[in-house]
Design a protein around this nucleic acid. Structure first.
Lengths: 348, 348
DNA sequence: CCTCAGACCGACAACGTTGTCAGGCAGGAG
DNA sequence: CTCCTGCCTGACAACGTTGTCGGTCTGAGG
């Protein structure tokens, strides 16, 4: 193409900078002022004449100057970013929570780091460490079900931390939780009210805080109704289809079979819904955790819904309160759950 | 509780640091070496005697020293973090994509900023700007359906950018896309093969790239099968239940009514599934985008599934390739879609 | 003995910004 | 007239790290 030459397209995307970023010095030089004056203009500080302000703004635009917050942060000790460490950003509950955190941070013009730990302690610690190395101003964490006393050194260094969804063991931090015990109680009571006396419980392993809480709620409902607790109807473990299938089968094979089912969290609910026995022998069912399409299932699912958006927003607000100077003992906020009645709890 | 006093619990969480973070200088002083030696140990550089190395490591542990990457980044010009700007992290497709990006970044020990733009250009630009101010080393963006030439100045400054899910208009960047046209063609062909000649299309507004592509695929299928294209069966707009309901009604009221339905993306599919007319008059249906519980719906849904995890991982790899020095023109990677056959395309 | 290579080590500058501070200047009071 | 006050302004140090560079020390080789 002789005679024609378009710059950007000629060599493709550059491996390195073609136009190095302008600094405050370049701006100052172009505007004919001192660097401090540029700083003042950038940060909207007073005591700059209108004339110089305009000159600086013009130079900023011309050079496409973008202040380096990393340098500013180094100088004044804050990054205007917070970190969110969760188990898995791809999981609907947690991604909704993340969205709410992001929203609150964004209103301040702050940015959010997200990191998924897969509920693995080592990964979690590496990520917290990595976040701390970037000097985030605060941390929201959905703690893995293990000891968290390692967070104490961060706390001592002045890093505010908020735990969300589960409490963090071994460390005193602000905390936002769902009312899982009460939610489970209401959900199970819903079945009991329909005359059931044998309700199977399928949930996470007992070392998971939320599993314990929800099982406690299950027992509350039972004892409220004067129904004896029978451990042979309780099935706790990893949320796989095989395990769910096994649980369903055992509940049915029981000398006094289960006539209803309560699943303790979304993953176990999903596993259960996919177990062959579930389709073959549908039984009245209430699930903990809302599912995206729960209303559209073959048998619309009655659920105890949490409110991840409120939890995320609350966690972020607790964090920002600390950053704004709130002192005092760790706060604990309990977000209520809500029973959403659909069809699945009724007898077929 | 007289006579008892536990330190950390006495005053609650501190508003500011109690123990200021140790710096490389503190470590050097304690270990009795120069700061450069500490730096060498921290970064695993050679030419440090075993003796001093041990002394430094001991001091680091004792002071809980954590290098300040913000300062390091200022000095050597990289942040070891990348930014991800998407429409909404709470949306399943995008959160899965985000998870994959995070995974790839994590393997390098890098961190990820995530920011949701809500497909609003202003917000998107503010977030990109904010990310650039933090000097992220790279950017992955799910571009809002508007002009993106504003990204050119970032590109010029040496910031590698990768577009995911949709191309970015007005700027030359690496890009990862689904094969939406072909996917839609296959999905519609699946209906055509079952004898349908009147297939309604419910999708996003035409200014959305993916809507255009998928509509093109729809037309491809039609023309492959020798079926004439009829605009009166095409319904494009915002994905609300009301609009879906209206579309369904119009498709049925057509002089030659639609006998099958293709929905062009998850939000429109959801809206359609919830439209009263859908339940009242179920019609063979194929949807673009997998839904979390599609297999468990009353009528399990046949879908054209994208692969968000592969897209995210690919985008991240393209980005890291650029960071590792790949030059050359913008790459475009097309990730295939997959038809998942369930029941919904069959006549009742 | 001297020379030289190479390992080891630390002083110092630099990265880009903001806080501190002191100087200049205008205008009002005395 | 001088003095003071209060606004503007920029020089400079500092934030915590890494690259550069020159110095010391050890051991081998001549």
């Amino acid at each position: 193409m002789p005679g024609l030459s378009i710059d950007r397209e000629a060599g493709g995307v550059p491996p390195a900078a073609r136009v190095p970023r302008a600094t405050i010095k370049d701006v100052a030089a172009l505007a004919g002022v001192g660097i401090k004056t540029v700083s003042r203009v950038v940060n909207g500080e007073p005591h700059v004449s209108e004339e110089k302000r305009r000159a600086v703004q013009h130079a900023i635009a011309q050079l496409r100057f973008r202040p380096n917050m990393s340098a500013a942060g180094l100088r004044n000790g804050q990054s205007e970013a917070i970190g969110l460490v969760i188990a898995d950003i791809a999981e609907p509950f947690q991604s909704q929570l993340a969205r709410a955190v992001e929203e609150v941070a964004g209103r301040r013009g702050w940015l959010l780091y997200t990191a998924s730990s897969s509920d693995d302690t080592d990964r979690e610690q590496r990520m917290v460490s990595s976040l701390a190395a970037r000097r985030v101003d605060g941390l929201i964490i959905v703690p893995s079900p293990f000891d968290h006393s390692y967070l104490n050194s961060e706390l001592d260094a002045g890093l505010p931390i908020v735990a969300a969804d589960r409490p963090a063991a071994g460390v005193q931090v602000d905390c936002v939780l769902s009312n899982g015990r009460e939610g489970a109680r209401v959900g199970v009571a819903h079945l009991l009210e329909r005359g059931h006396r044998r309700v199977a419980f399928v949930g996470d392993p007992i070392h998971v805080y939320n599993a314990r809480e929800r099982l406690a709620g299950y027992r509350d409902a039972l004892s409220d109704a004067g129904v004896p607790y029978d451990p042979s109807l309780i099935f706790l473990g990893e949320p796989t289809v095989d395990r769910a299938q096994e649980a369903l089968r055992a509940a049915r094979a029981n000398p006094s079979p289960a006539t209803a089912l309560f699943t303790g969290n979304s993953l176990n609910t999903l596993a259960t819904l996919r177990a062959p026995d579930y389709r073959a022998h549908p039984v009245p069912h209430v699930a903990f955790d809302e599912l995206p399409l729960a209303d559209l299932l073959g048998r619309p699912l009655t659920v105890v819904a949490q409110d991840p958006a409120t939890m995320g927003a609350t966690a972020a607000e607790l964090l920002f309160d600390r950053l704004d100077g709130r002192a005092g003992p760790p706060a604990e906020v309990i977000v209520p759950t809500r029973l959403i009645v659909r069809d699945s709890a009724e007898a077929p």
